[in-house]
Design a protein around this nucleic acid. Structure first.
Length: 877
RNA sequence: GGGCGAGUGGCGGAAUUGGCAGACGCGCCGGACUUAGGAUCCGGUGGGCUAUGCCCGUGGGAGUUCGAGUCUCCCCUCGCCCACCA
């Protein structure tokens, strides 16, 4: 065999990337005559460079986008940068560099990586959220929200990250820690802007049911986050004080068991009640102690319940009995009404509190056929049961009593059914520079005045000293702050906070439809054509943040008549994260890069990794790739050593895409070998290729021999499998199937008969079909090598322009099959029979076959189970 | 505490959804070609045994079934989400 030309992936990849770009191959143009397919990846934050986690995301997307294009869809596959945000500002502080410059550098690096990977993005549609042409529409939407009462400013206790020196939305304060830097979050009281997402709570919840093609996990997370609960709201009169306390409960069936009520420490009535009390200084101190607890402490597990009696009594609205009023740390101001009715017999928290402070316990629900002793019980009885001590409701089933009591309270006018949500309004004010200025002016005379639409954008001033200290950087730029009131022209001051960057990403998918529009955020023609996004892919970490905000925005825009879809993303796929070892040196108090540590083998065969600087043993972690942990692996090395096509195959071959994976480059050789074998196969058989194999196949079909039919069978089975696997995100198994196919093509090619003989010619016809169609089905995965081989087969253009192949069902059909013969469920023999052999024939063959005889001899055959096309199981005793 | 998901060779992972467990690949072992092999090709590779065959084997235990990695129940381990939410 002649020594074939080497697989020079570098030259090949460069050549094809240049051509695709010259040809404008991936440009998307609206075309109502063709079905559209909008594929979207979550756009990256330009924090430096792409890592394997990004690569996984974008290669999945590229396979789907290319495949859909080859199926005949008009594909929109855009990319951009979520370019505002804190890291750019931090980098600016650290390196004395303007955030714009830093961001621009990151974008350039990432763009080079995208190009290197050969992804089919339409770069004509690139967007950057930090460009005035983009963020002016953030401001425009803000004004529209404001007009509709969906944006408002209020003083509020907010989550404050002391490290980032800015506020955080509830969604960003994960269990009391900042989502970016993990610093414990503090409470602060500030005037802040909010978007009224709670007005959409019900629709955001209800419409989750429409999202059939979203992972259940994400929907569950959103449901939990919205946290809807149904119950009853009613008031307790405070005895002799002339005030009322409103409470909310989901357990109105326990209302006759109320023995006290509890207010949150922040409840507005607490100071009033303390004022009236003879023990006011003592109570004041107690409440201060509760208030001083940080969110972190309050939300950590097993916080001791703490409270104080407020020297006041409330009148139970049904029994008219007085019950004591307490204040306690376990009641949250943010949820419900900030006050609860306490039923210690039927709520564990209330029971613990009652036991600690010696309060009454009153049983109103009994377990069926058992008694509860209010003095002895250690666990609250929270199951349904039989009502007792509950006036006219005694004896009733508690589940039914829930409805009956609610009806009764509504009838006599002391309460009403109500629904509570855990979801809070979305805090969007950030005391940072690198974001969209909030288009509001404060005028002494006119108050809060929105900037008129025609004055947009409110530009971010370029020269700002960013120190990371002292609140909003914009407040230190007099030229920005001092302005005129748009209404009365008096001197006025601008809002100096900027918007949370999640605003930017809440509608970017709409901008991609019409990215260069300078009259409007987008035209309705473009959006009506492309929306909704048919397939959205990104990380699970956005399950409640971005994905909830984007749904909210879409619904508001729908109500404004700007879009026709009320849900933006038809199908969602959340890919697993890529983990990699990180090395933390305690002594140096810093993470170390892999090249900064030394690994040693211990005598027991274990591994010790030492810091390259101080020689101390480092802590080995397994973390999601991130810049801060210095454990990033970029696609560059892989592309340099093996090429983009190998890298693409490998990142998909690593495992199922929805599963997390550890980065381990060991298997990369395998896919590299696969591409090399394909390269050699085609190049060594270029002279065997018969361009008109399709016509020739017609002639030869009736006379193909077993090996030839076998190869065609494998080929067409593989086409079917790869098609199904792409549809089902089974990229790893699709690649495995292509490897199997190549193995068979290779062995077929090596045993072909001489070209001059008729059989030899037929061999080449069959080989040609396989060589050609393999390029088509492999193309979405490895676009460069397939385009190169395509050209060497004498074709023009790119495989991307070809129609996806359809499997020839007839060729794919098996002729014979292996039937497993079991005795009592254990495999004893195998039968090779023609497909479709009738049941009784199989039974007969099975009972007579050699491997079975020894196992059935002298035993009674009880049953014979025949599963057509699969097996025969002989049951003996 | 509640909810969701996972656990398969030395490793990453397959398994037509109840029908041959371990596809494909890595690694390893042996061979061929070679001055050489870290290139390529061929063969082998779950464990055990009295070895052309038989037994065991998908975190552990029970169950349903002719038949269970797959279904049911209990338990263990890990991951994620929510969590003093009234």
């Amino acid at each position: 065999m002649s020594s074939a030309e080497k697989y020079d992936f570098k030259a090949i990849e460069r050549k094809w990337q240049r051509r695709w770009s010259e040809w404008g191959l991936f440009r998307a143009v609206e075309d109502p005559s063709r079905p559209k397919f909008y594929y979207l990846d979550m756009f990256p934050y330009p924090s430096g460079e792409l890592h394997m986690g990004h690569m996984r995301n974008y290669i999945i997307g590229d396979v789907i986008a290319r495949y859909k294009h080859m199926l005949g869809y008009n594909v929109l596959h855009p990319m951009g940068y979520d370019a505002f945000g804190l890291p750019a500002e931090n980098a600016a502080i650290q390196h004395g560099m303007h955030p714009r410059v830093w961001t621009e550098q990151c974008i350039q690096r990432m763009r080079r990586q995208f190009d290197m990977l050969g992804i089919s993005f339409d770069w004509e549609r690139e967007i950057r959220t930090c460009a005035p042409e983009y963020y002016r529409w953030n401001q425009w939407f803000f004004l529209k929200f404001y007009e509709r009462g969906l944006a408002y400013r209020r003083p509020a206790p907010v989550n404050w990250c002391p490290t980032c020196e800015t506020t955080l939305a509830d969604e960003e304060a994960e269990r009391g820690y900042c989502w970016r830097c993990s610093t414990p979050v503090e409470k602060r009281w500030l005037e802040q802007w909010f978007l009224r997402i709670t007005a959409y709570a019900e629709r955001l919840l209800r419409d989750l049911d429409l999202l059939e093609h979203w992972p259940e996990r994400v929907k569950v997370m959103q449901r939990n986050w919205i946290g809807r609960s149904e119950g009853v709201e009613f008031d307790f009169e405070l005895d002799g004080i002339g005030e009322k306390v409103r409470v909310f409960t989901t357990r109105i069936d326990t209302v006759y068991g109320v023995t006290f009520i509890v207010l949150a420490p922040e409840h507005p009535l607490v100071p009033k009640l303390i004022e009236r009390s003879p023990r006011r200084s003592e109570l004041h101190a107690a409440v201060q102690r509760m208030l001083s607890r940080s969110i972190e402490e309050r939300s950590s597990e097993e916080v001791e319940k703490e409270g104080a009696f407020l020297d006041a009594y409330a009148i139970h609205p049904l029994t008219k009995e007085p019950v004591p009023v307490w204040v306690a740390n376990y009641v949250l101001m943010e949820y419900g009404t900030g006050a609860i009715m306490a039923v210690p017999a039927h709520d564990q928290r209330d029971l613990e509190f009652a036991r600690k402070y010696g309060l009454d316990v009153r049983v109103v629900i009994k377990p069926p056929g058992a008694e509860l002793d209010p003095k002895q019980m250690e666990r609250a009885y929270v199951e349904p049961g039989v009502m007792v001590n509950s006036a006219q409701f005694s004896g009733m089933d508690s589940e039914r009593a829930k409805e009956a009591i609610a009806d009764y309270m509504e009838q006599i006018g002391v309460g009403r059914r109500s629904v509570q949500y855990r979801l809070r309004d979305w805090l969007i004010s950030r005391q940072r520079y690198w974001g969209t200025p909030i288009p509001i002016v404060y005028c002494d005379g006119c108050g809060i005045v929105p900037v008129p639409e025609e004055q947009l954008p409110v530009l971010l001033p370029p020269d700002v000293k960013i120190t990371g200290k002292g609140g909003s950087p914009l407040s230190q730029v007099p030229e920005f702050v001092n302005t005129r009131c748009p209404r009365c022209n008096a001197s006025a001051k601008r809002e100096t906070d900027t918007m949370a960057t999640f605003v930017d990403s809440s509608w970017y998918f709409l901008r991609f439809c019409d990215p260069h529009n300078d009259e409007a955020p987008f035209s309705s023609e473009a959006v009506d054509y492309w929306m909704p996004v048919d397939q959205y892919v990104g990380g699970i970490e956005h399950a409640v943040l971005h994905l909830l905000y984007a749904r909210f925005f879409t619904k508001v825009l729908y109500d404004m008549g700007l879009v026709k879809t009320s849900e933006p993303f038809t199908r969602l796929f959340t890919q697993g994260m890529i983990y990699h070892e990180s090395y933390y040196c305690r002594r140096c108090r810093t993470y170390r890069r892999p090249e900064e540590v030394k690994a040693e083998r211990t005598d027991e065969g274990g591994r010790v990794v030492r810091c390259g600087v101080c020689e101390d043993e480092v802590e080995i972690g397994m973390d999601k790739m991130s810049k801060s942990k210095l454990n990033i692996v970029t696609p560059d090395y892989v592309c340099e050593q093996y090429g983009a096509d190998t890298g693409r195959l490998f990142i998909l071959f690593i495992g199922p895409p929805e599963q997390d994976a550890e980065w381990n480059p060991q298997g990369i050789e395998g896919v590299y070998r696969f591409l090399n074998r394909l390269w050699r196969l085609v190049n060594e058989h270029l002279s065997d290729y018969i361009p008109d194999w399709r016509d020739r196949l017609g002639e030869f079909k009736p006379s193909l021999d077993g090996a030839q039919r076998g190869l065609r069978r494998k080929l067409h089975q593989t086409i079917k499998k790869v098609t199904d696997d792409i549809e089902g995100f089974g990229f790893n198994t699709a690649i495995a199937a292509l490897m199997e196919l190549l193995n068979e093509v290779q062995s077929f090619a090596s045993s072909m008969r001489p070209k001059g003989e008729p059989e030899g010619f037929a061999d080449r016809v069959v080989l040609s079909e396989a060589m050609e169609l393999m390029q088509v089905v492999l193309h979405p995965f490895a676009p460069h090598i397939t385009d190169e081989l395509w050209e060497r087969l004498g074709k023009v253009g790119s495989v991307y322009q070809q129609r996806w192949c359809e499997a020839d069902e007839e060729a794919a059909r098996e002729e014979v099959q292996v039937i497993v013969v079991q005795v009592n469920g254990k495999v004893r023999d195998r039968l090779t029979v023609p497909v479709g052999t009738p049941e009784d024939e199989l039974r007969k063959l099975a009972l007579n076959c050699k491997g079975v005889q020894a196992h059935i001899a002298g035993r009674k055959i009880e049953r014979v189970i025949v599963v057509p096309n699969r097996l025969v199981n002989i049951v003996v005793r």
